[in-house]
Design a protein around this nucleic acid. Structure first.
Lengths: 228, 228
DNA sequence: AATGCGTAAGCTGCATGCAGCTAGCGAGTC
DNA sequence: GACTCGCTAGCTGCATGCAGCTTACGCATT
């Protein structure tokens, strides 16, 4: 099981993996919005490589369903339908319940420190909100929790649904602004409490709760934007 | 969500997808056993294409964790550890429970007929057992059930765990012989009953039950072969 | 002015050649 | 005889060129 990608792991990643992660982040952070056309030659020039590794990276992202490549046309970032977003969130709700049960690993002192760092960063966000920073903190929080999952298959699935859902978060944060920061602080406080107690099962349920909240926000601000 | 692969869909598949499916089946059917070294040039010659599409196909299979590519060495079929097999089965047990709940589609007359065909094929297997035929029927049964899943993310995950577990089934069928055919007949009888009643939730639980039986067989015959 | 067609530009899919890496074998040395 | 070093065969990673497909623009016709 090797597809649980992390962007802060220490070992040097291959060229293709680097490009893949970069493109993925640009999609999640909405640098590439739905409908944007990725051109292999363009990306190849930017990363100073040939089209071959770029093609490879895009081909892998295809598996997540975030882009669609058509011959003679190009690779476009897909706009997930309301039904697909619901499917992703339904699965995340179910997967969250399994985090605590599927052979988790022990919580270490290091985990607690990472949680505290993230909480501090979230507090800073309350004073000076920045959508990109918000998504970055979310990203690190996801990495922290994914690391606790012992079942490698579940870990992989958890990452896959994360990437599929991430861009919607960013859209919401653009519309709601600092409001989402408060929700993030609340989530991190809950999670830090659970980390201190070494209670992974609780972390799963906390995640499940806040995923539910997040989906409510998406329903209000994306799928029914007239209610804004 | 485009990675729910089927080998019997009607639309013409691209070269890369064809090669990918073929290699995947060879791994699942143990034509390529763990440790076998896939050579791009060799496969390219066999499929009468260049190394490029073969590389692409192998790269995609990498996501399933079934092969591992190392520079200068080659691509070898990995042997899943006992822990990984357990992880896959644990996840399949959980996913099976969701089949009936995550927005399934309606059961049609066609589904029932496909189920009957498979049952007949399984009955034939009782008289003249053939391990490959056994796996093929299992494969079609999986396709039938995966088609009933309405949640595209769950459908994708269901296929992913299927490919990760399939090769272990084949190993067991080689050791147990006709015995597994009886289990397959029993499973298909249960599933056909549920199909006739249009009860998808039941199908999920039936799958869950028989996945449990399958894991027991694997524990007996693969992970503790001395108990044979 | 509207419509149909042809053509060209731009993109992806694939083939091929070369560079870099790895492993294994054999010669040389202690 | 055992061990070490170097070389070579074979593989993957990447660059580049060409063919095929798609789209859009412009021109001619009605």
């Amino acid at each position: 099981m090797s597809f649980a990608k992390r962007d802060d792991e220490k070992e040097p990643k291959s060229t293709v993996e680097t490009i893949q992660t970069e493109i993925l982040q640009r999609i999640c952070f909405l640098d590439y919005q739905p409908g944007y056309q990725l051109k292999e030659a363009e990306l190849a020039a930017e990363f100073c490589v040939s089209r071959t590794p770029v093609r490879d990276a895009i081909s892998r992202i295809n598996h997540l369903g975030l882009v669609e490549t058509r011959n003679g046309v190009g690779t476009v970032v897909v706009a997930l339908s309301a039904a697909q977003i619901r499917h992703v969130y339904d699965m995340r709700l179910e997967l969250a319940k399994l985090i605590g049960t599927e052979s988790p690993r022990e919580i270490t002192r290091n985990d607690c420190e990472r949680g505290q760092d993230l909480l501090n960063a979230a507090h800073a966000l309350l004073l000076d909100f920045d959508p990109r920073r918000y998504v970055e903190i979310n990203h690190h929080l996801h990495g922290l929790i994914a690391d606790l999952i012992g079942n490698s298959v579940l870990q992989s699935f958890w990452w896959q649904t994360y990437y599929q859902a991430a861009s919607t978060w960013y859209q919401v944060s653009l519309q709601m602004g600092a409001e989402v920061a408060q929700a993030l602080v609340a989530e991190l406080e809950d999670i830090n409490r659970a980390l201190e107690h070494g209670d992974i099962t609780a972390i799963g349920f906390i995640q499940r709760t806040h995923i539910g909240y997040g989906y409510q926000r998406i329903n209000l601000h994306l799928l029914s934007p007239e209610a804004k």
